[in-house]
Every structure is written in structure tokens, then in C-alpha cells.
Design a protein around this nucleic acid. Structure first.
Length: 416
DNA sequence: TCTGGGGTCCTTTTGCCC
DNA sequence: TCTGGGGCAAAAGGACCC
């Protein structure tokens, strides 16, 4: 919604745009997953293509602009998207390819400046303030990146150039597809104030409703509202944050990398489940997956959280903080099972379950004794052996007995 | 139209200690 | 002994992002 609103305003008047004092670039791939798929399906270029799962409950991950013309957009339920655009080619995602393409474009970015802050697989902030002498103005660097990404990865991207991160991000959204826009330092307020509130970072559906109730439609409206009023409606942090953004004030720097704060996995059942045996088996699988990823990242976490989404979409979470951090699936699972059983659900219809481990620390910096306390040592050793086997013989070579009989996909009671 | 899966951050509530 | 409340950490919920 908000992104489309941004585009509907059309491009800025085509002036050169003074990019001095604009060291921040936001680079965003155009329809990333779909564009990557089209590289191997060139006959589909120029046609509506939707990337997303094939299951009844899957959603659109990405769509070409030809499909978007029919109203299809990401996060839309697949069923609805196919109804809106029956002629679209639907492709199920191949994440390995996206990871690889992502690594490629991030390498391009890092050849320009070490100050690269990836936001996701397909977008990043760059601070090119230190690269001007070597590579030219911010605009020239942006065009260089766009050319190299097309050359090396065969996909297009859009670039926003500005003095702050969030204006750069808005600019790249407006530059889409396959464009570049500079918002000069002294035109920031002129650029921002006519835009609808929904384009602001942090304003989603709920916040937009709250702002509408206050009669605030545009960013200019927010700018002319007392901070205290915004804070009363939205909370202290969000209120002052939005007020600052509405005047183009954004102190955040480009940060190269922050360590992860949590790792988790969740799964929506193909159909709602009310059998605790199936739920527990899924929790075991998710615990295995989560712990394996912790070990692969040399991380451990101290808090285990379980998430349960019911058939009516209400969602609850329960968490427990352990005495010591862990990366042992058995410990994660035992905790998760305890949390789940404490809910005392009597055959409630469950749509989704998830497991997450929070409060992550480096395994290296965790004293051995502490890490291995609590009876987890044998399990840990066994799981490390399983990791090694998986590395040699492929994932799934070693699995807990409860998961051996049936493949994970068969958690659907109807075996779909 | 019936809503994925990976996360982050913020707010409020709760329980504990003093 | 009862009650209040400050301070804190953990827990829970929810909004948001891609």
C-alpha cells in the first residue's frame, strides 16, 4: 500500500539534483526473487510472473511488474494472487539462487565502500562519503553500482541518494524500477511533506489508522503536530521518532553488522492441527533446526520461546530463561515442550507453531563449564557428531527417532 | 481476502526484592 | 504486620519490516 502510494506521486522533476552532502545510498533490487528466476527463464521476461509457495496457505514472495499491474504484491495470499492474475506463471522459490545472487551484489557494494549495511538479501545502505575521490560523486557511484549489478548479476536495481538513511530509502522506492534519484540536502523537507504518512519507516497499518484518527494524512501534517500529541497517540518512542523523521532528521549511521539477537523457526501446518502428538513432533523438528543453526553460527542462547497461532489467528508466546545458554536441540526441545504443555490446551485447533532462542552470545566467550552444565553435554556431543555426519553425507543423514518414520512434510494430517 | 517465515524493537504486565 | 512503591528483569504481546 504505502510503497505504491509513493510511486503514484511520480518521479521528481528531472533536475540534475545536487548530491553534495548526500553520502548515503540505498540500493534495492527490483522484484528481486522474480528477477533472479527470469535469468534462467528468459522467455518469461515481459510477462506476469509470481514467485511463491504452491501450498494452499502460501503467500506471494515477489512478482514481476507485469504481475503487479494486476494488483498482485508481495505478502498477498497466493490463492488471491492467482485469482487476480490467472495468466501469471507461478514459480516456487529457489532460495539457494537468491542467496548466491545476494552475495554477488553485496560484493559489488563492498568493492565501492566497506561501509555496507545489508537490510535483507536484496537491499543495503552504503555510506560512500569516503569513496568520492576514487569513484566520483554519490550519483556517479550509484550509477556505477547499477551498471555493475546488471553486468554481473543480470538483474536491475534502484538507488536512492540522500543525506540520511531514511530519505535515501524513500528515494530508492520512488526511483523504482531501474532508476536513481537524488534528494538534495536542501530539498528534503519539500520532498517529504507532500508524501502520505504510510511511507514513513515504522508506520504500518495500525499506526496509519491512529494518525488518520488525528486527521494526519501527510508527512507535513505530522511535522506540524506537537510532539506531545504524537507521543500520546503512539507512545513516547514512536512519537518523537516520527516527529524527527517528518523534518528529515535521522541520526542513524550506516552500521556494518550487528550480531543476531535471536534465531528461530516456525511452521504453518497445511491444515489446522489439534493432535498434541503432531504438535510435539513439529516442535522437535523446529528445535533441531534452530539448534543446528545456532551451532553453525557458533552461538548459544539463554531464552527459549514458543509461539502458538490458533485457527482464528490469535497468537500467544511463552518463554523461559535458562540458567545457562545452550545450543543443544534436546535442551531447546525439552524447554519448548514444557512451555507448550503448560498451556494445557485441550485439543485447540492450532495453525502454526514456532520455536525461537533469544539472548544470543558467542559460544567462544561462554565458559565451557557453564555452557555444558545442566546435563546437556552428552546431547551436545551427539548433536555435534550429527552435524559432522550431515556435513559429509547430507542434511537429514541423522535424525531423532521420532522424525525418522515420516518425512517432515507429512505433518499434515491428511498427508498432503 | 483469509493472511509465510525470518527477524527487530517497543510497550505493558508481572513477579520479586527491598 | 500490612501496605506502598521504586527498581529491575523477565515475560508477553503486538507492530513492523522484507
Amino acid at each position: 500500500m504505502s510503497r505504491r502510494q509513493l510511486q503514484r506521486n511520480g518521479p521528481l522533476p528531472d533536475r540534475p539534483g545536487d548530491d553534495t552532502g548526500c553520502p548515503i545510498l540505498h540500493v534495492d533490487m527490483d522484484a528481486f526473487y522474480a528477477s533472479v528466476e527470469l535469468r534462467s527463464r528468459p522467455e518469461l521476461v515481459g510477462t506476469p510472473v509470481i514467485v511463491g509457495g504452491l501450498g494452499a496457505r502460501s503467500v506471494v514472495l515477489s512478482a514481476t511488474y507485469e504481475a503487479r499491474a494486476f494488483g498482485v504484491h508481495s505478502a498477498m495470499p497466493m490463492m488471491r494472487a492467482r485469482r487476480m492474475c490467472p495468466q501469471a506463471t507461478v514459480i516456487s522459490p529457489s532460495h539457494g539462487q537468491y542467496d548466491e545472487a545476494s552475495r554477488g551484489v553485496m560484493e559489488v557494494f563492498r568493492s565501492v565502500t566497506p561501509l555496507v549495511e545489508p537490510l535483507s538479501l536484496d537491499e543495503a545502505f552504503l555510506d560512500v562519503g569516503g569513496a568520492h575521490r576514487r569513484l566520483g560523486t554519490s550519483r556517479q557511484i550509484g550509477e556505477l553500482i547499477r551498471a555493475r549489478v546488471v553486468d554481473e548479476q543480470g538483474i536491475t536495481c534502484s538507488v536512492g541518494v540522500a543525506s540520511t538513511k531514511f530519505v535515501a530509502k524513500l528515494a530508492s522506492a520512488r526511483a523504482k524500477p531501474d532508476g536513481l534519484i537524488v534528494v538534495p540536502r536542501d530539498e528534503v523537507v519539500t520532498f517529504l511533506h507532500p508524501l502520505p504518512v504510510g511511507v514513513l519507516w515504522g508506520v504500518g497499518e495500525k499506526t496509519e489508522e491512529a494518525l488518520t484518527r488525528l486527521g494526519l494524512r501527510t508527512i507535513g501534517d505530522i511535522a506540524n503536530t506537537p510532539v506531545a500529541t504524537l507521543q500520546r497517540a503512539l507512545g513516547a518512542a514512536a512519537g518523537s521518532h516520527l516527529s524527527a523523521l517528518s523534518w528529515g532528521r535521522d541520526q542513524r549511521h550506516v552500521v556494518v553488522s550487528e550480531p543476531d539477537k535471536s534465531v528461530g523457526a516456525e511452521e504453518t501446518f497445511a491444515r489446522d492441527v489439534d493432535d498434541p502428538v503432531i504438535v510435539l513432533r513439529e516442535l522437535l523438528r523446529l528445535s533441531e533446526r534452530t539448534a543446528a543453526r545456532l551451532r553453525a553460527a557458533d552461538s548459544m542462547g539463554r531464552t527459549v520461546a514458543v509461539k502458538v497461532r490458533f485457527a482464528d489467528f490469535t497468537t500467544i508466546t511463552r518463554s523461559r530463561t535458562l540458567r545457562e545458554p545452550t545450543d543443544v536441540a534436546r535442551v531447546v526441545y525439552d524447554t519448548a515442550r514444557g512451555l507448550y504443555e503448560a498451556l494445557g490446551l485441550q485439543r485447540a485447533r492450532i495453525r502454526l507453531v514456532g520455536v525461537r532462542v533469544e539472548g544470543l552470545v558467542d559460544t567462544e566467550s561462554t565458559p565451557r563449564q557453564l555452557a555444558l552444565g545442566g546435563g546437556g553435554e552428552e546431547w551436545r556431543a551427539a548433536e555435534q557428531a550429527a552435524d559432522a555426519a550431515a556435513a559429509r553425507f547430507g542434511a537429514g543423514a541423522v535424525r531423532p527417532a521420532a522424525l525418522v518414520e515420516r518425512s517432515p512434510r507429512e505433518v499434515d494430517p491428511d498427508g498432503l
